[in-house]
Design a protein around this nucleic acid. Structure first.
Lengths: 207, 207, 207, 207
DNA sequence: TATGAATGAGCGTTCATTCAT
DNA sequence: GATGAATGAACGCTCATTCAT
């Protein structure tokens, strides 16, 4: 432990908000948004029902805030990993692998993001979901830069490639999560997806 | 009374069941499963609320039945299209393109399958979803056969490739549906995905 | 029992609405609008909680509907009584006496109308309360006609006199109701109010 | 520091109690008792929510205390005005006029007293409301003394006349307050009510 | 005294499901 | 079979009140 800083004085407030988010993460992963009970989130967070409404406007807002929080963390971590390598192909592999690794590390987050994100039209249509936009643009940017640098084929629009890549890795993560993490090795699958995507599934003719 | 054929046995009934499924398709697409009201489905189907329970055990059962019905149709149509070409690479392209074409033709179905299928753990965990298994196995079989025939690279397990491919095309369809079908051409995107998957995103160094 | 008429077939619908209104009348009188529980109204009406919402949009709507219903009946009955006499002074006496008599007959109604009508700004400000307007205009019309006919002094605007008269008799009814009907004779008080209003409280100096 | 008088003992406290009452007066007038939020009263008083409970036992107690405070002031002021004239008829006119004038001066008070006083049975039945009793007795005493002095007709019990008079002027004030003070002149109306009450609404037949 | 974050009991309302007709 | 009025369990949210600081 380090010396206590001023920010230790009122950890309660920030702490409580985090505890509620953590609890919501688990409960939404367990039951899904609609089936989840606010009372259960409160109980697991160790706060009263009403306390949740001191930090979040509504159950909807709680889910949205959870998205924002986790996507922000995800984006930061991916950005970091991806920034450590140079070529576009490498970046793509690192991206896929890191996404899988983070999902493996936080299976509840993966479950919520993967399932609830698509969830109801309510969130997909009425809520802009800016962090997911950032996420997709980050991936599209990698592809676009690689195309401009001549590293990647430009026969496919960067955003389409990014969407498809996300869909592919996300589906793998979903299958892994729903299988309880025991059906296959998600990290290896991510590598295999990277290889397939970059070098192609079709066997090259020519010896 | 005239001679009754098998399909004549429950003409009114069968008709009503279909009308309810059609209505559910639209309403689930419009509102999402949890936000959808059984009464609205009944109204649009032109039947009384209670009538729905003569054909389906519950709202859950209605969604499941809708899945079964639409996935069955989807599988049949894909099977047909895919059976018309010979090589694995061709089959994959046809598969992707047909999936996109069917989604374009039935956007409500696409919306329901894409969003609600992943929906709540309720359905992903408690309901086996056999038709979706058939769907995935069909795609995995194509890959597997191609690998055995030496047409496709076998560096990736067939089921992993199938999952990834499904995730990719499904995500493209989702983006297309949520964009109101106006953001891009889903058929072209499916072709681009096919090319990328088969030949690889990475630019080939010297032939 | 009489022979069943056609209207006996579905007495349930209209019957139920009336039963809910009757129950609301008692419960609102007993607890006041805000303290009254919808569940208690349902219980006393012999229906399920949800049934109330088949006939009324909300608890607010239930109170408003109760106002409309009872004021309408009140207006009709007053109109009838007042129409039976000719001169304005007589009409005023009959009006006051009938109002008191009806309150005596339906003390719950009197309590609700007298207390809850003024209740919260919610109803006095946001809800126009057209029947109460009718009520007041009926009384004002009596005064106005009497003034035009030279029967009544026109030193006071008819609407002001009507408001004051209503306030006076209503306050007497309120005191009577809150006293459990045992503190004094409300019918006699109504007569005394009539006499005072018409002939004046001030003792006439010798003619 | 200056010499402390008795009222200096709890200057902050007393000040805060008054500020809370003033705020409650406005907020209750604005929203009605039940719809009013304790937090809003605290905010407008410039104190913390909890502080209110240092001065008042509950929200109910706050309303009761407000009644007591305002009725006490009202009674004192009316007493003063009424004491300045001699005859019963004059006292009655002054009473009505002063009541109207005070309502005009403090419309929030008028609104709270007029509406909330009748409010819920909770207050009319469980709370004796001694100050209102004083108020009524003051008016009844005027009438009674006038009757004994031969100035007023004794065909109506003093308390009934007092109730009716209060109801009349109170209703006029209510109408005036709810009309935003713009529909008519409440002072003139009070005078007209005084004249009508004393000399009678009925036109005298020939002298 | 004063604060205001935290509490948790309480309730209006919804809606999937039932069943008498 | 078909209806749709009726049911009642369930839950998100509010807000008066408390109490550790």
């Amino acid at each position: 432990m380090t010396v206590h800083s001023a920010s230790d004085r009122k950890p309660a407030g920030g702490d409580k908000r985090e505890r509620i988010l953590d609890s919501a993460e688990r409960v939404f992963a367990r039951h899904g948004f609609y089936t989840a009970r606010v009372a259960e989130i409160a109980r697991e967070a160790g706060v009263a029902d009403g306390t949740i409404y001191l930090y979040f406007k509504s159950k909807d807002d709680l889910l949205i805030s959870l998205f924002e929080s986790r996507m922000e963390r995800l984006n930061t971590q991916l950005q970091e990993k991806v920034g450590a390598v140079d070529s576009a192909p490498e970046k793509i592999c690192v991206f896929l692998n890191s996404y899988a690794a983070l999902a493996k590390q936080h299976p509840h987050v993966a479950e919520v993001l993967t399932i609830e994100l698509r969830q109801s039209s309510k969130f997909m249509k009425e809520y802009a979901n800016p962090r997911f936009g950032d996420f997709l643009r980050m991936l599209a940017r990698i592809v676009e830069d690689g195309q401009k640098a001549g590293e990647l084929d430009d026969g496919i629009p960067a955003l389409v490639a990014a969407r498809a890549l996300f869909g592919a890795i996300d589906e793998l993560v979903l299958a892994w999560v729903l299988g309880g993490g025991e059906k296959f090795d998600i990290l290896r699958a991510a590598d295999q997806l990277g290889a397939m995507t970059l070098r192609g599934l079709e066997k090259r003719r020519q010896p």
